[in-house]
Nucleic acid binder design. Structure first.
Lengths: 244, 244
DNA sequence: GCAACCTTTGAAAACTCTCTCAACGACGGG
DNA sequence: CCCGTCGTTGAGAGAGTTTTCAAAGGTTGC
C-alpha cells in the first residue's frame, strides 16, 4: 500500500515507464523483487540464468538490470560483458554474497554501477536502483535526492538527516526505517509491511523490532518537539506533520 | 441493502466491471464474500482448491484474487506463483489465520499485495480490496481515498477523520463503524447489518455493541454540532446531513 | 584483541480498547 | 397518561497492544 507516486517522477526521457530486468535463480527472490519494482511503476522482466538474461537484454532493452553475481553455471563477468555489448548505457545493480570477492566488484562498480550484499532489504535495493537511474538521467528533476516531511529533511546520498536545521545522527537501521516512513508520509504502515520493506528478506524475527526502532527514532527525531511519528493502535505507524 | 454506487467508480480502464476471484475451501465464507463483492458491483467467481483457482485464473482472468493461504492439499506459495504466471498484474489479498502470522511469509506485502487475518470483518476485506484495486490503477479518480458526508471527511489511508476542519481521534472499531456509515450515507442500516459488516464473522456478542459504539461516535463526531448520526427507532441508524 | 556500538530478544509495566452489566431515559401504543 | 419496549449512557473487568527496561550476541573500527 505504499505510495507509487513517490517515485513516479522517475521516468524515461521519452515519458515511458522505466524498464528493469531482474536476473536471479531463486524464484522467491525474483517474485518479491519484481513485485516491488512493478509497484514502483516500473516495467519488469525476470530471467533465471545467463541465457535468458541475454535474450531479454536484446528483446526487452531494459534501462537497468538487477543481477545476481553468483548465478550457477554462469560467469558473472562474462554475462555482464554480454549485456553491455547489447545495451551500452544500461545501469547494473549487483546482488552479491557478503563474503564475495569484493575487489572484483569494486572494480566493476567504478563505472557508476552499484551493488548490495545479501541479505538485503527491499528498500535498500529500491533506493540504490533509484539512485542509479537518477544519475543516469532517468529523473525528470535532476536535482539532489532530498526527502522532506514538515521540518524533517533527509539527504539520501549524504545519509544526512536534520530536523529544523539540527542534524540527527542515525544508525543504519534507523536511517532505513525513517527513509521508508518519509517515502510514505501520511499513510499508515503496518508493522508487517515495514518489516517486509526495511528488514532483510530472510529476517526470521517478529514485528517487535519495529516497535523498538520506532521508539529509537522517536527519541532522536521527535525528542521534545511536536511529534511527527504517530502510533495508530492495532494498525501501525504513520509519519506526518501535525497540521495537514 | 448497501449502496453499490459508493464504489462504482472502481472500474477497469476499459469501462467493464472489475473481476474478482475468491479462493477458499469453506463454502460459508466464499458465499458471504462473493455476495458482498457482487454487491460492490464486481464480477465474482469462486474456487475451492488450487486446481480450480488456476483454471479460473486462466479463463476468468480476474483483476484481483482473494486467496486463503491455508488451503488443504495446496501450497499457497506455489499456487500464487501459478496464478502470477498466468496473470502478471493481478492483485492478491491473502486470508491467513491469526497464529500463522508467526511464520509469516516474508515479502507478501512487498508488491501491491496485502493480507487480512482471520477472523476478519467484511468491511475490512472490502476496504483492503478497494485499496489494492485503486492503487493498481482500477480507479477512475486516481486521487486519494476520501469519503465525504456533509462537513465530515475521512481519509482512509491516513486513517484521519475531521469534521468542519477539526480532527477527530477514533479507535479502530469506531473508525470501521464510521467508515461503513460513510460508505452508505442516507441509508438506514439495521444493527444486524452493521454487526455483519463491521464486526468479525465469528463475533458471538449481541447487537448491543452497535448501540454502544454509535454512542461513542456521537460523542466524538456529533458532539455539540448538528447531528449527522440519526436513530430510526425499531429499524436502525442512518448517517446524513440535516438538510436534504 | 579490545572497546564501542548496533541489533535482537525477552520480560514486565503501562496503556488503550472492547465488551458486559446495569441503570436510566425516551418514545409510542393503548 | 401510564406502561412496556427500545435506546442511551456510565462504570468496570478483562484482554490485547504498545512501550520500556535490561541484557545477550554480533559487528566494526581502532
Amino acid at each position: 500500500m505504499d505510495n507509487p507516486s513517490a517515485s513516479s517522477h522517475l521516468r524515461r526521457p521519452d515519458g515511458g515507464s522505466v524498464r528493469v530486468l531482474v536476473v536471479d535463480d531463486e524464484p522467491d527472490l525474483t517474485d518479491v523483487l519484481s513485485g516491488a519494482l512493478r509497484y514502483e511503476g516500473w516495467e519488469v522482466r525476470t530471467a533465471a540464468d545467463g541465457a535468458g538474461a541475454l535474450a531479454l537484454a536484446r528483446d526487452f532493452r531494459p534501462d537497468a538490470v538487477v543481477l545476481d553475481w553468483m548465478l550457477p553455471d554462469t560467469d558473472g563477468l562474462a554475462l555482464l560483458r554480454g549485456i553491455r555489448a547489447e545495451l551500452e548505457r544500461v545501469c547494473v545493480l549487483f546482488l552479491t554474497a557478503r563474503d564475495a570477492v569484493e575487489d572484483r566488484i569494486a572494480g566493476i562498480t567504478a563505472g557508476g554501477d552499484d551493488y548490495v550484499t545479501k541479505p538485503f532489504s527491499l528498500e535498500e535495493v529500491l533506493a540504490r536502483l533509484r539512485g542509479l537511474l537518477r544519475r543516469a538521467g532517468m529523473a525528470r528533476d535532476a536535482g539532489e535526492n532530498r526527502l522532506v516531511v514538515g521540518d524533517l529533511v533527509m539527504d539520501e546520498d549524504a545519509r544526512e538527516v536534520s530536523r529544523a536545521g539540527t542534524a540527527i545522527d542515525l544508525s543504519r537501521t534507523e536511517f532505513e526505517l525513517l527513509r521508508y516512513l518519509m517515502r510514505n508520509p501520511r499513510r499508515v504502515l503496518s508493522k508487517a509491511r515495514i518489516l517486509d520493506h526495511v528488514w532483510s528478506y530472510d529476517f526470521g524475527g517478529r514485528a517487535h523490532v519495529v516497535e523498538l526502532y520506532i521508539s529509537y527514532l522517536r527519541k532522536k527525531v521527535d525528542a521534545g518537539r511536536v511529534p511527527l511519528i504517530h502510533t495508530v493502535r492495532g494498525v501501525g505507524y504513520v509519519l506526518k506533520p501535525e497540521a495537514p
